[in-house]
Nucleic acid binder design. Structure first.
Lengths: 209, 209, 209, 209
DNA sequence: CATGAATGAGGCTTCATTCAT
DNA sequence: GATGAATGAAGCCTCATTCAT
């Protein structure tokens, strides 16, 4: 494609992208037909194929755009921040908020991973996300702020926690994204284990009790 | 359905279940046709519908069976264990191993979540998983071994870490599941933050350095 | 076919015929599968093909049997009767009662007429019915009891009235077959027109009124 | 459905309707595949489903349209006529002619009655037909022109005679519809019985002979 | 740019019939 | 005689895509 678009054309194109994304997310990619998309927008089928070469291409556009937007949100969030730990925290907060506000795009990402044609797009995006976060983790380790563990593992774990809590607690259970972000941060920072001293106190109390 | 099956029939049914699961996982559910399944097994198309009412029904069987099997593996893993923390650790290890050994079923689960008719199955399974793990987390908190945080959040976070590391590090990168399990456990136990004392030492060293 | 059947075999065969006939009538011939018939009788598919060469053959048996039975009922009804008009009346009564008691067979006959493979069976049966009734009509004309009209037309008309009233009033509306038979007889005998004298009286009354 | 159709589209749609109706009538509804219909019209399979949601829906359209057309023909036929008896006669004539000219639609109606999903359409149409004719019969009775019998029964009988003679004498035997209509009228008006006086004369003659 | 119409491969499912045991 | 299993042609329908206007 890469057509030159008029102002109206640009608008049409984003209408298509947005409506398709929401419909794909709600009904599934395969379950949504091109016909239903153009019907939903009250336009002819020609419109669709004027702006996009194929249904697949449209979907890949949606995915790429979503990844770009999330990355931007994360970048903005850590812009003025220099402490590695707080950068990570801000990243988690921004991600949680973005996933909450663009839940339909989140769902699409999860689907895309399961189909051979789209998986590479997602994997590339995820590698990118890891590469974006890795330096902060590494810096945190170097600065002695973070444990001396494989930084790639740590990064992946943080992403995993964030995504899963976003899905289960925010999207499915409807909890407040900022609170869930805080919980995710707390979990990632300190884990689940009680601090040694407190634990010792509790144990002696338990023994004496 | 619910036919009476002979020994041969039972075998055929599992062949179908297994072959279909692997093919769905490799090529995607929608991309795999019933025709290709029966061709792959060198049987007539009717065989499929002798054992299953529909492609969807077969898929739901696969999902349910996978959830049951993972749950059994987890149950076995914590059988002889009474300490809540070690129960959680064993659960993570067992899950990681199972997901690594049944990666195709893991992939299917992730897809199923993205389609309205299958999502309920997955969500039910996940609720079940949370309910299974929750008591141990709660017991750990009561015993003063775990931080006094929302146990449901903790449980969800643990599941999120485990699943994500399984996918990225084990399935995609091919790392050893037991090592990844250990990393997941370590992350979940202690988080990423360096212990306060070490941190203090590092900071003073950094200051003096 | 034409197997020699044991007593048990004969029973099985009529069970099949009866169950199939009722199911065909209720659900339609094409809509009823051989599988559903054997399932309904809790037997294997082999049973079906042991007694009948094909689904079509079974159906044709049902049709032929139905026609034979109706014909017998009619024959019995006029057995002791020698007056042509009363023979016709008794024929109508017997038919109405039989159709009411074997409504499922009636429905099948109507369907069979609409499919090229079965239509000839029905038409043959109907020709037979006309041939059976024709002599009585002809005798009635000769005896000066019936109008001097084309006897074939009269016969067809009588059959038409009987069948239609059976379907609409007895089967659909659930009226009493004997009453409907009486109405059919009355209609066939005298038509709808008021007798001339009564009509004349009414008209003069209307004129004076 | 309920599409906006262009002139060309409207034409296509009627082509489909007409061709399908004739083919269904000739070969049977179940025996006629959608594939054979579109092949017969030299169009792609999609065309069928562009205009109709399903084979069943198309068929129901055909039935409804047929009923509407027959009703119109009847209405036209009695338009200038005020005498109840002549209205009935004209109705019979118009019906006979219409059935003869649209024999394929007649056949479809008869089939439709035998399948659960179509039967309601037919029954509704038939109720309509009875309701249309009933007033004239009732008026005839009130005016003293027709016998004082259950008008619904009379109406049903008239319809039964007309339909049956149309099928057997016109469609199957190829007789002239107007002559058959006349015979039907005569039958319905006067029945089969010879008038009393003629009968008496005949009997005395027979006695003396 | 846009529309309604058309294409036709391909998908899911049914089902009469046959067969090994 | 009888069963569960298997066959595979054929049916209905969907849908991404193309095209004439």
């Amino acid at each position: 494609m890469a057509r030159k678009l008029t102002a109206k054309g640009t608008k049409r194109r984003s209408e298509l992208l947005d409506y398709a994304a929401r419909t794909f997310a709600r009904d599934g990619y395969h379950t949504t037909s091109v016909a239903s998309i153009v019907e939903g927008l009250h336009v002819g089928k020609g419109v669709f194929y004027w702006y996009f070469a194929s249904k697949d291409e449209l979907f890949i556009h949606i995915l790429a755009e979503a990844q770009r937007a999330l990355r931007l949100a994360q970048r903005d969030a850590i812009a003025g921040e220099h402490d590695p730990v707080r950068r990570i925290e801000q990243g988690i907060r921004a991600s949680m908020r973005w996933l909450s506000e663009h839940r339909h795009l989140f769902v699409l990402t999860e689907f895309a991973r399961t189909e051979a044609r789209f998986a590479p797009v997602i994997r590339a995006g995820e590698r990118q996300a890891v590469e974006d976060a890795l330096p902060h983790v590494a810096a945190g380790i170097t600065a002695g702020l973070l444990r001396r563990e494989d930084p790639e593992v740590m990064t992946a774990a943080i992403i995993g926690v964030t995504a899963h809590l976003a899905r289960v607690l925010v999207l499915e259970q409807g909890r407040d994204p900022d609170r869930v972000a805080q919980a995710a941060i707390s979990f990632c920072r300190d884990g689940i284990l009680q601090e040694a001293e407190v634990r010792a106190a509790a144990e002696s109390a338990g023994a004496s009790g």
